[in-house]
Design a protein around this nucleic acid. Structure first.
Lengths: 355, 355
DNA sequence: GCCGCTGACTAATGCGTATTAGTCAGGAGT
DNA sequence: ACTCCTGACTAATACGCATTAGTCAGCGGC
């Protein structure tokens, strides 16, 4: 029963040749008529009508595979993710991008190929050539921290159109789209300043991820634009949980610091430490002290009051990535735009108390 | 202008002919070697090795369209969604399935093609032949309420392997996977009975969706298996918000009803009404009255105490759908399995108060 | 010394469309 | 009367791969 499938599949599927026979014309004519006659061939209206009628009568529908083969492109954009973990973790990082990717791809007439990458330890995991699979798509989006740079470089150097979601400067020639952490962080500082804060401290973790650097830069930019000196306003904590204590907080408050800003990281350690310190000191935000988070809060803190800060526009990033990729495909132009983050009012920052 | 595009798309996309040239063999040989030599042609090991090496060196990947056209397989599974709603709404219905789909597909060595369907009003929206696009993939998963039945029927009748996520009996010959609402609802009733409840009432909305019918059936099954008469225990509310009032609730409690069960629908109206009535009557669950929900709570009630009830195993459904589809592809067997729902303890049901 | 074989390939063809070169009958022009 | 159009099509071919018929050199057998 199943081996009949291909035969069966063909039986009911009329092709252009059949339509042509019924209409008494050639297959070429059918193709031209049904294709909208983009080549501007002169056609007699009657012929057009006969072809259309025949096509309708047979219920002709073009075979997408043949169509794509003939057009030498398949209208497929790839999405390759390296997010190593599955369900829960992915839910918070992978999907939001996809929302934008899907929307924008649909709007441009592309379908998506989801490469079941290293993310799920699938059939291809470990395969050193696994990345080559993406060539099946016209171009591909990449996302995730742990992309094998060598393989990706190979692809790019061979002229394969690729766009990375997230800044990626190490790889020459790789197009990417990223969020503008610098501007967003500066804006958070400006908002705090507008509320009246004059002494603001940033708590960051002690590594050198580019995303952290950008936030610090934005933070300093913000201070500068408000005419606030940056002396002692950035604190690096190797172990936030241990270093950001209630005592530490009290000390800084005594010095006149009224607002604290934490960077967002995957663990959210700095922010957690800050919250704990405030609580430990018997204070509340924003009544006693203002807090802001340079990013989105970790999912497990969803119940807490919404932090003042900014949101990374993941869907918009996804859409921007698709735009960049299609630009690459059609015009060959490589662009690596920054997408603006949205300021989030939140409920953890307010005016400082009048002493 | 268009010929530029194809040239561009092709650049860097090696075909078998190129691999052949590099390996010093014919295109046929390349095809045979890379295709796993299913025709049992005798090949010199060295030749095989050379071809493999050449393919790796060029990063060769077969063109899915050509492959499909030549009547072979792609290792691509399609996913076509009709969830016509927007990102946020989609987040709660579309993605959870995908998690399971992707996982299972990866485990079986398939990649996924996400057909950007009517879901986003994309380029193909309105196109009456839009569904035919899925033919690019070996088989396709469908999900969503509003699938154009005619087009889908066409595909199925032509022998195209399709599986619908969610029960779908109207379409003869369409394979589907669904959640076992009957068994899950019965179990909820049994649990309530175990806690000591003897009078239980189900509140359902007044439509006739199959999912609603299944839940009611399960509810009645549960009562029966516990030896509880079903008289007056099912209430249909056309307008739950208006009919499920605190007074109504008090009345039933006076009659000895100790537990209330609501069906899940997309709006969650029955459940909302029940919660409001309990609150309006100045009662709390599970202290004064036990509540259960036959499904998952609406997302906006995430802050409320977790309802006792069951969860639809969306990821598992997705995985089951992939299994059904691959079964169709390999053995041709059509199966339409029911997947069990997981009982959710929750915090809204307890033992009834000893009067 | 010619036959038949076997091992190791390759030429040719088909899948269904889109495109690019024609073809061909009938009028305009000279 | 012959060329030159032009309008209305069509033949041929490419797309990239899978498959089905070969091809061909070498070798044992009689």
């Amino acid at each position: 029963m199943p081996e009949k499938q291909s035969a069966k599949a063909r039986r009911g599927r009329p092709r252009q040749a059949e339509v042509a026979r019924l209409a008494g014309v050639s297959q070429t004519t059918v193709s031209v008529v049904l294709g909208g006659n983009k080549q501007g061939i002169t056609l007699h209206p009657d012929t057009t009508a006969r072809v259309l009628e025949a096509a309708r009568e047979l219920g002709y529908v073009p075979d997408p595979a043949a169509r794509r083969l003939a057009a030498a492109r398949n209208n497929l954009l790839g999405v390759f993710s390296f997010t190593a973990t599955f369900p829960t973790a992915v839910e918070h990082s992978y999907y939001p991008f996809l929302v934008g990717v899907e929307q924008e791809a649909a709007a441009r007439g592309y379908d998506l190929v989801l490469f079941t990458g290293s993310s799920s330890g699938g059939a291809h995991a470990g395969d050193s050539g696994a990345l080559e699979r993406v060539r099946l798509a016209d171009g591909c989006l990449f996302l995730g921290r742990h992309i094998p740079a060598d393989e990706l470089r190979r692809l790019v150097e061979h002229g394969y159109p690729a766009v990375h979601i997230g800044r990626r400067d190490e790889l020459e020639n790789l197009a990417w789209v990223g969020a503008d952490y610098v501007a967003a962080s500066a804006e958070v500082v400006r908002r705090l300043a507008e509320l009246g804060h004059r002494r603001i401290v940033l708590v960051r973790e002690d590594d050198d991820a580019p995303a952290s650097g950008d936030r610090e830069r934005g933070f300093r930019d913000g201070l500068a634009s408000e005419g606030i000196a940056a002396t002692d306003s950035v604190v690096r904590a190797g172990n936030p949980a241990a270093e950001i204590t209630p005592e530490w907080l009290r000390g800084l408050r005594a010095e006149g610091v009224t607002a604290f800003v934490a960077e967002e990281t995957d663990t959210g350690a700095a922010w957690r430490a800050l919250l704990a310190a405030v609580e430990g000191a018997g204070l509340t935000a924003p009544a006693d002290v203002s807090l802001a988070l340079l990013g989105s809060p970790p999912a497990d803190l969803a119940g807490r009051p919404e932090p003042t800060g900014f949101d990374i526009p993941r869907a918009e990033l996804g859409a921007a990535a698709v735009r960049a990729l299609t630009a690459l495909l059609t015009t060959g132009e490589t662009e690596s735009p920054l997408v603006a983050c949205a300021f989030r009012q939140g409920r953890t920052a307010g005016s400082p108390r009048r002493p």
